[in-house]
């Protein structure tokens, strides 16, 4: 749907695709929305999708089967998956503490959860590198037990942990907050232990939120660039992430190659999103109102 295709429709509010309304301003609002969206989102995306075809699919195929590209894609998706997975229990713990317990400084702590949202990624990148680098306080600590943090996939994982956490916490928090206490109490009066109540009653209720928190953190982590490139070390085949490869290919004026990698990332992310929506739908069918 390009803006050009839909914009004329917006001029005819009485056509069948829109229900009548007494409120004014639909043509203007819709027209502007579609035009802007068409120019800023749709047109560039078309370029991304069409470009690899234009230059020959063989180029795309050979790009995507380059060992270096495969390694980068594997690293990006693999570390994003691991980091998002780790963030699920951590996020649940943090959200649980923030919603269930009252302690001094709770509001402040709660506000700090959003810091990775608010901190520019480049800033996070150099700060994390300073901490986990060979001379950094935690980098030295990990080095002592034989783990190289910065300039290795471990560093990437740490950066992705950092940027993904708020997504998980913020999706679980409102669900935990709204969780009907009566339901937990019901389980209690029926003889369930603390663990059983958590496992059988609370966890199934927050499971959809956990899943969407996971997929949000994952989607963000896959494409993450700024906070990762400083700490990653960017060694081809070892610690080079897919977004960086796009930048490198662009610097070599390999537009087709860059577009191919970008398209592959988008496609895989989109596939993951679809799968996640499927799971969500399945869970929704099972009894959520």
């Amino acid at each position: 749907m390009t803006a050009a295709a839909l914009a004329p429709l917006a001029g005819k509010p009485r056509s069948r695709w829109k229900q009548p309304s007494i409120l004014p301003g639909f043509p203007l609002a819709m027209g502007w929305t579609l035009t802007y969206l068409g120019l800023v989102v749709v047109l560039p995306l078309i370029a991304l999708v069409v470009r690899p075809w234009e230059l020959g699919l063989s180029v795309t195929w050979s790009t995507l089967t380059e060992p270096r590209v495969l390694a980068a894609l594997r690293l990006s998706f693999g570390s994003a998956f691991l980091a998002a997975l780790t963030n699920v229990p951590i996020g649940l713990l943090v959200a649980w503490t923030l919603t269930r317990y009252e302690f001094p400084g709770r509001r402040l702590i709660d506000a700090f959860v959003d810091l990775p949202f608010a901190l520019p990624t480049a800033v996070a990148g150099i700060a994390l590198t300073a901490i986990y680098g060979p001379n950094g306080p935690l980098g030295e600590l990990f080095a002592k037990i034989g783990i190289k943090t910065a300039y290795s996939p471990v560093g990437i994982y740490i950066a992705l942990l950092f940027i993904g956490l708020p997504f998980v916490v913020r999706t679980i928090q409102p669900v935990l907050q709204d969780l009907d206490r009566e339901v937990e109490e019901a389980a209690h009066t029926l003889g369930a232990t603390n663990l059983q109540r958590f496992w059988l009653v609370v966890l199934p209720a927050v499971l959809p939120a956990l899943l969407s928190g996971f997929s949000l953190a994952f989607a963000r982590a896959v494409g993450e660039y700024g906070s990762v490139i400083f700490i990653a070390g960017n060694m081809p085949m070892k610690s080079e992430i897919a977004p960086l490869l796009i930048v490198i290919k662009l610097e070599q004026y390999d537009y087709a190659g860059a577009a191919s990698v970008g398209l592959a990332m988008l496609a895989i992310s989109f596939g993951g999103l679809l799968a996640m929506n499927g799971v969500q739908l399945f869970l929704a069918r099972r009894g959520r109102v």
């Binding site: 009907d180 009566e182 339901v183 109490e185 019901a186 389980a187 209690h188 009066t189 029926l190 003889g191 369930a192 232990t193 059988l200 009653v201 199934p204 209720a205 869970l283 099972r286 009894g287 959520r288 109102v289």
Partner: peptide, 21 residues
């Protein structure tokens, strides 16, 4: 403790487990 009292409680809004049959 609550879970040893064996009282059957029916809550105002029933508090059914929505993910269970």
């Amino acid at each position: 403790p609550v879970r040893r009292r064996k009282v059957g409680m029916v809550f105002q809004h029933y508090a059914l487990f929505r993910h269970m049959t």
